[in-house]
């Protein structure tokens, strides 16, 4: 393909991907409780409504708490796992890596059902703690992948240099490896946070009737009455995702994080 054709093709696909979001953003600006596009009686009242109406405020708060805590859990579990796999690199360590990557690779319904029967069995079905831990396990893959990538980029001679300069094992970890991994831990956290906010099926199966999150609230509204607030939430979620990934792209190397090795610096 020629250069122009390539750019044209990429642009068309991106526009198609943007179309539903544009429509939803338009819908969120309707003055009335109707989903019209182009919107009528332009107004931002539904944005205010999200933060005022307790029907939506509670799920918003739930979603934020779950995302913040579960992503922290995911990073806390992923870091020692990735470090161990990196430093040992034997069969057992590789099996551990597969275990860390598996939760996110499988169809989420399977994990969701697994979590459901698990929490029912131990009597924690319907509690927010159950949702948080489930998300923490489900999303552990993302920091495992980003931190492992970070470790793969750590030059072994940095570790050796630190050792020859008098640093013990633990000091090498603290003064060399962890500082180098910080950006990868932050990206892993951001990925996990955004995905936890958007996750529906696990939150639904584990505590859908007691701990409503925003996706669950939207799905319920799809059945029992559309409102422009759904558009508002969608716009905010897209914005948050774009902000998080944009920051990673701005301060990190997103192409490398996603597996590209051959990227020019121009």
């Amino acid at each position: 393909m020629t250069r122009h054709l390539q750019i044209f093709y990429v642009t068309v696909i991106l526009l198609l991907l943007a179309a539903p979001i544009v429509v939803v953003a338009g819908v969120s600006l309707n003055g009335q409780q109707s989903l019209r596009f182009p919107p009528q009686d332009l107004s931002l009242k539904w944005y205010a409504e999200l933060f005022r109406n307790s029907d939506w405020l509670v799920p918003l708060r739930n979603s934020l708490i779950i995302a913040a805590v579960s992503s922290l859990l995911a990073v806390a579990i992923a870091l020692p796992l990735a470090l161990h796999v990196w430093s040992r690199n034997n069969r057992l360590a590789r099996a551990l890596y597969v275990l860390g990557v598996a939760p996110f690779m499988l169809p989420p319904v399977i994990s969701a059902l697994g979590f459901l029967v698990f929490w029912v069995s131990i009597g924690m079905y319907g509690q927010m703690t159950a949702t948080i831990i489930s998300h923490g396990v489900f999303l552990v893959t993302l920091p495992v992948v980003t931190i492992s990538l970070g470790l793969a980029g750590v030059d072994t001679s940095l570790v050796e240099a630190a050792r020859t300069m008098g640093a013990r094992r633990g000091q090498v970890l603290r003064t060399v490896i962890l500082p180098l991994l910080t950006p990868y831990m932050i990206s892993g956290y951001a990925f996990a946070f955004v995905l936890s906010l958007n996750e529906y099926i696990i939150a639904y199966m584990v505590a859908g009737f007691t701990v409503e999150t925003l996706p669950i609230k939207i799905f319920n509204s799809l059945r029992y009455g559309y409102t422009p607030i759904m558009g508002v939430v969608s716009v905010i979620f897209v914005g948050l995702a774009a902000l998080a990934f944009g920051l990673i792209g701005r301060y990190g190397n997103l192409p490398r994080l996603l597996g590209a090795e051959r990227v020019g610096n121009d």
Binding site: I21, Y200, P215, I218
Partner: peptide
């Protein structure tokens, strides 16, 4: 590449609920 990847990731991370709602709209 970074810009396109940010767009792709933002769409990819969107909840199925939101995608369903957006497309049905």
């Amino acid at each position: 590449q970074t810009i396109v990847l940010v767009i792709l990731l933002s769409v990819l991370s969107l909840s199925e609920v939101i995608i369903g709602f957006s497309l049905s709209t």
